[in-house]
Computed example of a mutant assay.
Amino acid sequence: MNISSQTKYATFPQRLFAFNIDFLVFLVTAVLLSFLIKDDYWFWGILFSLVCVYHAAFESSGWQATFGKKYANILVVNELGRRLTFFQALLRIITKYLSLLLFFGGFFMIYFRKDRRGLHDVLVKTYVVNRSN
Rank of each mutant, 00 (worst) to 15 (best):
Ser4Trp: 00
Ser5Gln: 09
Gln6Asp: 10
Thr7Phe: 08
Lys8Pro: 10
Lys8Thr: 14
Tyr9Cys: 12
Pro13Gln: 09
Phe17Ser: 13
Phe17Asp: 12
Ala18Thr: 02
Phe19Arg: 11
Phe19Ala: 14
Asn20Met: 14
Asp22Gln: 12
Asp22Val: 10
Leu24Phe: 14
Val25Arg: 15
Phe26Glu: 08
Leu27Asn: 09
Val28Ser: 12
Val28Asp: 02
Ala30Gly: 12
Val31Ile: 12
Val31Phe: 14
Leu32Arg: 01
Ser34Cys: 03
Leu36Asn: 02
Ile37Met: 00
Ile37Tyr: 01
Ile37Ser: 01
Lys38Pro: 01
Asp39Phe: 00
Asp40Phe: 03
Phe43Gly: 00
Phe43Cys: 00
Trp44Gln: 00
Ile46Asn: 01
Ile46Trp: 01
Leu47Arg: 03
Phe48Met: 08
Phe48Val: 03
Leu50Ile: 15
Cys52Gln: 01
Cys52Asn: 06
Cys52Ser: 11
Tyr54Asn: 09
Tyr54Leu: 14
His55Pro: 05
Ala56Pro: 11
Ala57Val: 14
Phe58Leu: 15
Glu59Thr: 11
Glu59Met: 10
Ser60Ile: 04
Trp63Pro: 08
Trp63Lys: 13
Gln64Cys: 15
Phe67Trp: 15
Gly68Val: 09
Gly68Leu: 09
Lys70Cys: 09
Tyr71Ala: 04
Asn73Glu: 07
Ile74Gly: 14
Leu75Cys: 13
Leu75Gly: 10
Leu75Asn: 07
Val77Trp: 02
Asn78Lys: 00
Gly81Asn: 00
Gly81Val: 01
Arg82Trp: 01
Arg83Glu: 07
Leu84His: 05
Thr85Lys: 01
Phe87Cys: 01
Phe87Glu: 00
Gln88Phe: 06
Ala89Asp: 05
Ala89His: 02
Leu91Asp: 04
Leu91Gln: 07
Arg92Tyr: 04
Arg92Glu: 02
Ile93Pro: 04
Thr95Tyr: 03
Thr95Asn: 08
Lys96Thr: 07
Leu98Pro: 02
Ser99Cys: 04
Ser99Ala: 09
Phe104Ile: 07
Gly105Leu: 15
Gly106Tyr: 09
Phe108Asp: 01
Met109Ser: 08
Ile110Phe: 12
Tyr111Phe: 15
Tyr111Arg: 05
Phe112Gln: 04
Arg113Gln: 08
Arg116Lys: 15
Arg117Phe: 07
Arg117Pro: 05
His120Trp: 06
His120Met: 09
Val122Thr: 07
Leu123Phe: 06
Leu123Lys: 05
Leu123Arg: 05
Val124Phe: 09
Val124His: 07
Lys125Cys: 12
Val128Thr: 14
Val129Ser: 13
Asn130Ser: 15
Asn130Phe: 08
Asn130Lys: 14
Arg131Cys: 12
Ser132Val: 14
Ser132Glu: 15
Ser132Phe: 13
Ser132Ile: 13
